[in-house]
Design a protein around this nucleic acid. Sequence first.
DNA 1: ATATATTGTGCGACTAGGAGT
DNA 2: CACTCCTAGTCGCACAATATA
Lengths: 346, 346
Amino acid sequence: MGTLESGATLESVAAAAGVSRQTVSNVLNAPERVAPQTRQRVQEAIESLRYRPNRSARSLRTRTSRLLGYCVQPAPEGAINPVLDRFVHALTESAADHGFHVLLFTAPPGAAGLDRYAELLAQRAVDGFVLSDTVVADPRPVWLTEQGVPFVAFGRSWSGPDHGRWVDVDGAAGIVEAVEHVHALGHRRVAFIGWPEGSGVGDDRLAGYLAACSRLGLTPLVERDEGGVEQGRAIAGALLDDPEPPTALVCVSDLSAYGALRAVAERGLRPGADVAVVGFDDTPAARLPGVELTSVSQPIEEVGRDAVHMLLGALGVVEPPPGPADHRLLRPTLVVRASTAISPEG
Amino acid sequence: MGTLESGATLESVAAAAGVSRQTVSNVLNAPERVAPQTRQRVQEAIESLRYRPNRSARSLRTRTSRLLGYCVQPAPEGAINPVLDRFVHALTESAADHGFHVLLFTAPPGAAGLDRYAELLAQRAVDGFVLSDTVVADPRPVWLTEQGVPFVAFGRSWSGPDHGRWVDVDGAAGIVEAVEHVHALGHRRVAFIGWPEGSGVGDDRLAGYLAACSRLGLTPLVERDEGGVEQGRAIAGALLDDPEPPTALVCVSDLSAYGALRAVAERGLRPGADVAVVGFDDTPAARLPGVELTSVSQPIEEVGRDAVHMLLGALGVVEPPPGPADHRLLRPTLVVRASTAISPEG
DNA sequence: ATATATTGTGCGACTAGGAGT
DNA sequence: CACTCCTAGTCGCACAATATA
């Protein structure tokens, strides 16, 4: 039989300490109301009985579950970006610092998935939500705001006004840094391989590219594709086959960049020596020997921590950190590898 | 104000339907005890009030939380294997099919982390645990078994007797398939790049290699390293520099295989044409153009589903599926790509 | 006696107000 | 009147025994 089948309760601890239930409760939730001597005695009883408050009972009474809901999406086909691992771990760890846990659930994308959120709310299963994989015109922030449900999103709402709290990574700033980096290496014909217009994240990164070109006096050269490796390979190939090809390819994602690297290699050119290639996301494959892709790295752990703090702040659990309470924009960092190692000739 | 601030309870539904609390409860938990006509009326009241049973209250009464605990590990440095995404999603989805949710928590590895498990148990926060990242002499299965806590592990206990339920992937069978594959292509000098002895998983995969060699009449050639890309590159390089080098390299993991691919390329050889390379795990980078690594793919989603079913079976929530109740060994599949495309000459 | 619906009770904790010194 | 502690009531649900046709 297990040593924690005990099932100690407020009652049994009180009996062991020779006080009433309420005094034990006070020791846990309002220690200053209990005389030090009594407190000591109660704490010893708690220790010896290995007492822990029953979460369900506490939840029922306080009407808070100390659970944060997070919807896990299935990893998209061909995904190379294991964000979930890091983000979820950061969420879980930060939540634990304040006695909270993360509750996972699944939901279909779009408005159809709102039912799942409503269900958890109606059951009082969670105190709030952490959203990720937000898209343009995502119905969730609007709906949750209407319902008065505390939440925080990883990702801005790209269309219309902001709803609720969010944490995001400044993609434009990341691309600016990338362009400045290749510019500093001497590259003057710098192309951008982007996503189709209207993706929010993609438009933001493109904006960074255009801003950097403007500031540095470079002529923008933008190509767009659907973002896959093969598409990146084709687009990059077309660019390189131009009579006056770009010497640097800044890509909206690592996936495009892997395609670009391939296109470079297929033309007998050496990435980093003949053509610079930069990606975005710093996916695990970027560091593999033979790849060594320079890439913009997102501070995922920091996003997770900030998200939890903002949400717990909204729940009144922690003092909200200084700064704007409803959003936070974090700077990514450029990780330089061999794909942008050497200055071009000329 | 939100439409689900309602806070409907059994009581209010009962009032709306003109019946007693208990009848509403029966409609939900034992419909056959309620006359069809009454049932209908109650269900309409439930609908119109958007009633959902309060999870905390139900948990308190039934002494079950309908929550499965899962400990998320921080992704190890240089990880290229985003198992968590897929595994956790599969867990969450399967659990949802039976009204369960996954509760995430963190814990330090080894015996030091048992406290976190004990804590959740003492709080009655979870009904059972799903374990992953099990290691040789993992203290958790033993401890949980002692405590009488339902759990299921992704991964066998490699040392001593089995404790509790587990689901695992037959790594040996996967490697056998890999060796048979390169053998069928005509390779006769097939080397294995493995992990140091004592890793359980690594030893299992090695056993598959040795069994296949024995069956096919090949001379085993085993090298071991710590499993990193650079180590794989060095080991593979040494093998290839032998006067009579192997023509096929079967690797214990994709990480080693990426190193091996690099070593092959560095010697002016073409992976797939001159030297066959096989990895294990089918990590996302394996499919990238220019890599195209043949690899053994684990049925992660199936592992997750089976794990949940076994655990829910142990909790008495579902009818345990046919077959052995305490363990399940799943076959991986070989995904053939360009790194083993062509038969060698000779 | 069978089918159906109803009361009482307690799960374990917190909140409010009262009693003792 | 502080300070400390306790009694009584409540959260929403499900189990058990009971009442009504």
